[in-house]
Structures are given as C-alpha cells and as structure tokens.
Design a protein around this nucleic acid. Structure first.
Lengths: 267, 267
DNA sequence: TCTTGTCGGATCGTTCAACAATCGTCTACG
DNA sequence: CGTAGACGATTGTTGAACGATCCGACAAGA
C-alpha cells in the first residue's frame, strides 16, 4: 500500500513537470569544472509539494484502499478537523482530486467519491483496448529504445509483485500490481499524455473493484496471462503480445461488466 | 471572438457532464401531458456553475484568444482586482485551468500560461494520430449509429464554418473551426474520455498556434483536405477517410513542428 | 571585476472568521 | 395525504492576516 502511494506520486510528479526551461547554454564553463549536468535529472525530484497536494495524496490513498467507498460524501468540516488543515486548503485538495476523476463535485452538496456507472465501465474498457493495444503496437521490432526497455522491466516487476501477492493471499496488493502492469504497458508508448490518461482510467477501474466482493476472482486468473504477455515482450514478439493482450482485455471486460452490472442492480 | 467564446463554453459544458444519471424512464407520464422532452436538451446547460467555474471560463477564453500569451504570469492580485472576486475563488479557478493543462502552477511563484515545448508538440501529434485514427476506424461500415451520424454532422458544420472563415479572412475563426473539426473526428468514437483527452490536447495545440505568426499558413491549406475527409465519411468510405486523415496529420506535424522549433529557438 | 552575503519588496501559501446561498428534513397546516 | 414553509446543517464566497518564499538590488570581500 505504501509503495503504491509512492509509485503513484512518482509517476504523477514526473508528468507534472513542465518542459525544459531556456537556461541552457550559458554555463558551460561551470559544467567543465564540476559535472553539474548530472544534477539536472535530480532537479525534477526537487519539486516540492504544497500542503494541498499532500492532503490530496492522503485522500487519494484512502479512496484507493477503499477507506472511502464510492458514493461516500467527504464532509469538509470533518476532514478538515481530522487532518488539522484549513478549509480552503482542503477544498484545494478536493479540486485536485476531482481533476483525477476520483471525486465528483456537486454544487452546494459537496464532494463524493466517484461512483462509476456501467456506461463508464464500458468506456473505460474501450479506452484500454485502444490505448494499450496501440502502445504495444508502437513498439515495433527489437531492439527497442532505452525507454521501452525500462518500461518492460517495470512490467516484469509488476508481474513478479503480483505473483508474490497471490502467493501471500494479499489480494489488495494483487490488484495494485495488476494495475501497475497495465500502466507499464501504456508506458511502452512513451507518451506522457497517454500515461496520464491511463493513470486516471485505471484509478477509476480501482473504484469498480472496490464495490465488488472477492477481488481475487477478478485478478488471480490473469496472473498467468500477465506472465505470458511480458515474456512475449521480452522475447521481442510484439504481435503475439498484442494479441494476448487483446484477448485478455476482452475476457476481462465481459467478466467484469457483467458482474458489475449485477452488483449495481443489487445495490 | 465572441462565437469562439461561446463555442468553447458549449463544448466544455457538454463534455463536462458526468455520466448519465439514473433519472430516466420514470417521467414518461409527464412528457405525455406537455412537450417537456424538448427541454431535456437544455437540461445539461442548466447545470449551474460556481463563481470559480465562470471565472475559469473567462480566463480560458482569454488564453485561447491569445490575450494572455504563453509564458505570461497570471498575478493573483491584479486579476482578482480586475474581475472583482476573492483571491480564494480565483485560486480555485486557477486550479481548474491547470487541470486542463492550460496553466502551470509553480509553488510560491504563481501560475503561468503554459509554454508548450517541442517535445510536447511531438507527443500531441502522437496522441492525435493514435486517437483520431482509431476514432475513424471504430466507425466500421455504414449505417453508422445515431451518435456517429450526429458527429459527422458536427464535422461538416465545422468544415463549413472553416470555409466561411477563410472566405472572410477571419483566421482566428478558421483556427477554431479547424480545432472543432478534429474534435468532431474524435467524437466518432463516442467515448467521453477520448473526447476529454482530445479537448485538452487541442487546447494545447491552440497555444502553439498563438506563438506563431501567420496562422493562415497553418490552417488554410487544410481546408480542402477537411472537406475531402468529411465527404469520405458521409459516403461511408471509412478506410479512405482514415488514410486521408493520416496523411493530413503527418503533413501537419512536419510543417508545424519545424516551424515551431525555429520559432522557439528565435525566442 | 567577479563572486558572495544580505536586505527588502512583492507575491504566494495557509489559516481563520464571518456571512450569504443552498440543500435536506421536519413540521404544521389545509 | 399531500404540500408549503421553517429550520438546521453544509457549502460558497469574501476579506483580512501572517509566515514563507522568490527575486532583484545593493554592498562587502577576494
């Protein structure tokens, strides 16, 4: 859970960085005496966070872990008291989270944890099929670029994490690993905007899982398929991976949407 | 300028609507006694807006029309005074616009109109090629659904608007029409999330056009190609439209990225 | 002359208090 | 039984205040 937090923040922070500023080319003399250029990488990590962002991090984790189930109203007063922050700061954190589609804001009524509709779920899968498929296809033939290689390593790490979680019956961690697997798939495309989109979509999907009992049923069967996909990627069989992934998503979609519709109908 | 404003707001409002609420199917009796159904369209417009959202609308338009060029710092104090609103409300509006990637927020330094980097531009086109292409492909064979038919009508309306703008040498309107054309293309997929993504991406692209002189050069040549594409769509030649679109994007990309890189280098 | 330390104004981050607007519910009345 | 209206709770918005941070200017030192 803690690592899920860190990972989410890291990705978010990396994407939030704006483009290069124009301060290059004037200090080559300095760079000659000490290798200052190596610090430029760290500079992105330096981005400090405001209180509102940290509050948003806390609330995001709470929502992700199911502490605030979908539909819950997040009262300004109670949360402000519990976290010891001002109302304005809390409202700013709320805005940040509505941006991520985790919360919805209703005028004069407050903010609620998003309730994903069945139509939303269909759209989520449409996006996934499109984006994840395109990401794999964009790989082309090996050798891949350094960026893609790193993405593949991240994917494999997610698979391993999932296998360990399954072994330890830590279903929550399994869900996290599964989400990170697909995040890694999209990262193959190397497009920050696609990563951003998919991060939001997968966060929404997590909300879906939270209203379902027995998360194991929706994650465990896909462990071996994740493994197959990453092995295909590592072997350079992009087309095979894409095909496996398409089947995966189709199966997952039908299984999940059926169960979710029923769950929503039951209340 | 005024119509650009209205259009931007209308599009934004339509896309900002959250998923279907569950209030359908229960009031058919009412519709029978008086023609209430004609009001259902307006109902989405009826969603009241907070002050912060209206402020955000104003600022969004100002940015879109180039009143605030990229890189401009938006001072809280001066804008708050000019609009006659509280600082907190203004900050909330800023948050809304940073969510749309129009502004960037730097801690303790304020908010700035986004400066799109050359890398951003590359990513923007990657996303466009992927998403717009997939949207057209998702059409399949005619007859299309009602949703897709309406999207095609919107596309054609955008083409007509563009042709009229070109005739009147209203280059700003031409840019708007062009953007709306591509927004319509994506709407073919019928995916709210894709529409959302593309709205943001096209808004970013507008920022690019604002730092370039002679907008005509980047829009006028594509008028006839827009026309060809929409005619292919109307004729049910999806594959042809997709191919035309792909060429369009490739040409646009190379023309724009070259000019933009040079523009950024010149300062 | 160049570098470094220090200062002060301007602006942002955050909190607090207050009031207006709105929502939901409960009640009393027809 | 249904409905209008009052009430309490919560959100929307404002205004002021204080500390923190940034940035340019200016002075001291090598």
């Amino acid at each position: 859970m803690a690592d899920a937090t860190d990972a989410a923040n890291a990705v978010h922070g990396a994407n939030a960085v704006k483009g290069a500023d124009g301060t290059n080319g004037a200090d080559e003399r300095l760079a000659a005496m000490a290798d200052v250029s190596s610090l430029e990488t760290d500079r992105l990590l330096l981005g400090r966070t405001s209180t509102a962002e940290r509050v948003a991090d806390v609330l995001r984790d709470r929502v992700a872990e199911g502490f605030f189930p979908p539909g819950t109203r997040l009262s300004e007063d109670s949360i402000k008291g519990a976290l010891g922050i001002s109302r304005n700061t809390l409202r700013e954190a709320f805005r940040l989270l509505t941006r991520e589609r985790l919360l919805v804001h209703e005028l004069n009524r407050g903010v609620f944890v998003r309730v994903v509709t069945v139509e939303d779920l269909g759209d989520i899968y449409r996006v996934r099929e499109l984006v994840e498929g395109a990401a794999v296809r964009s790989l082309g033939e090996p050798p891949y670029g350094a960026e893609a290689d790193e993405a593949i390593r991240a994917i494999e790490a997610a698979v391993v994490a999932g296998e360990e979680a399954a072994q330890g019956r830590a279903w929550q961690n399994l869900a996290t690993a599964n989400i990170r697997f697909h995040q890694g798939i999209v990262a193959l495309a190397g497009s920050p905007r696609m990563n951003d989109l998919m991060r939001g979509v997968l966060a929404e999907l997590r909300l879906v899982f939270h209203v379902m009992a027995d998360p194991r049923r929706f994650h465990a069967p896909y462990l071996t398929r994740n493994r197959q996909i990453v092995e295909a990627l590592q072997a350079g069989h992009g087309a095979a991976a894409e095909s496996l992934l398409a089947d995966y998503l189709a199966d997952s979609r039908s299984q999940l949407s059926g169960a979710y519709a029923q769950q929503m109908a039951d209340g």
